[in-house]
Design a protein around this nucleic acid. Structure first.
Lengths: 128, 128
DNA sequence: ATTTAAATAATAACAGTTCCTATTATTAGA
DNA sequence: TCTAATAATAGGAACTGTTATTATTTAAAT
């Protein structure tokens, strides 16, 4: 993979946040330092970075988000914030093993997303 | 919610399979008994059925699938088949409780998807 | 410096989904 | 049973997120 300034910027942007940004968010940020970068370039590089296991692609409902954190971890999603937070639960590996054995499946990954309301939104006030 | 023949057909189709069909697949099936049903009608009704908790919407990468099984359960996805299979792991409720307490989150749901290769595809032969 | 192929910007194409509008069908009430 | 009110529909346009195309630019090997 040949060097490109665009890819470096895109990589740095993903690594600069814990917010699991969308391609469009990355695009907006990238334009600040490189005003005529194109959205296609952002998508192409996010895919390449994923293929090289430099970042991870995760799915939030129907849209793709990108995560620099390649450690095995789960996500917590607040239905009010919409934002996703990284969390650690200890059971991932054990769960994988159990399913592997029980279902004769060669499990390579587990995606666990907890959906609910964070402490800011779990009282009665509701956004929107 | 007023009765409609279309909605009844759509509901029956989702309830007739374990394959977590996409909207388009449901549309194809529905056309057999009602040739000029429209795709918009399929989407509208799948959403309504979801809102009424008659079916569940699940996401597979970037596309929506529909599941009649409202029981708390996990999914197993074969990267070769692409198909999703329902499975049961015992830890869901415990996981929810742990995260609830540890992160002060009001968890309403957990989505767990195991990704790997089923017994048909976990040897060396590879599709496509 | 020249050459070669990878990467780019710009934009068209695409897939999945939602929205719009004139028409049709369900259902409550006369 | 007929009628009126309005929810649901078909058909298609519009929208959103993503991928593909192409002429041009750029990294980097020679």
């Amino acid at each position: 993979m040949r060097y490109s300034q665009q890819r470096e910027i895109i990589r740095d942007i993903v690594f600069s946040t814990n917010s699991h940004p969308t391609a469009d968010w990355v695009y907006g940020k990238a334009k600040k330092s490189m005003p005529n970068i194109s959205l296609g370039t952002v998508y192409r590089n996010l895919k390449q970075l994923t293929d090289q296991h430099i970042i991870k692609t995760i799915y939030d409902g129907t849209i793709a988000r990108y995560d620099w954190n390649k450690e095995s971890h789960d996500h917590l999603k607040c239905v009010d914030c919409g934002e996703m937070v990284d969390i650690q639960t200890s059971n991932r590996e054990r769960l994988k093993t159990v399913v592997n054995d029980k279902h004769n499946f060669d499990i390579t990954d587990v995606e666990i997303t907890f959906i609910g309301k964070c402490h800011k939104h779990n009282k009665k006030e509701k956004k929107e």
